[in-house]
């Protein structure tokens, strides 16, 4: 599959694969790197703890 398009000046412009675009974007990586553990570790864990019933007084 060709990965080349045409730039505005008519010169061939290399298309950057999606994965490389992800790896070249530190702020998207920052979002993923914070959101993933925040959801899977922190939020999930805290939700489980919040469902533990309180001991009777």
């Amino acid at each position: 599959m060709s990965e080349q398009g045409t730039g505005s000046g008519g010169a061939p412009e290399e298309r950057v694969p999606a994965m490389q675009r992800l790896l070249d974007n530190p702020f998207l990586l920052l979002f993923l790197g914070v959101a993933t553990p925040a959801v899977l570790y922190l939020l999930w864990g805290v939700m489980e703890l919040s469902q533990i019933p309180l001991a009777p007084q």
């Binding site: 992800l22 790896l23 990586l29 993923l32 790197g33 993933t36 553990p37 899977l40 570790y41 864990g45």
Partner: peptide
């Protein structure tokens, strides 16, 4: 990238 996504979950 594996580190960015998963390494922090090892805290568990």
């Amino acid at each position: 990238l594996m580190y960015i996504l998963f390494l922090q979950l090892a805290s568990a």
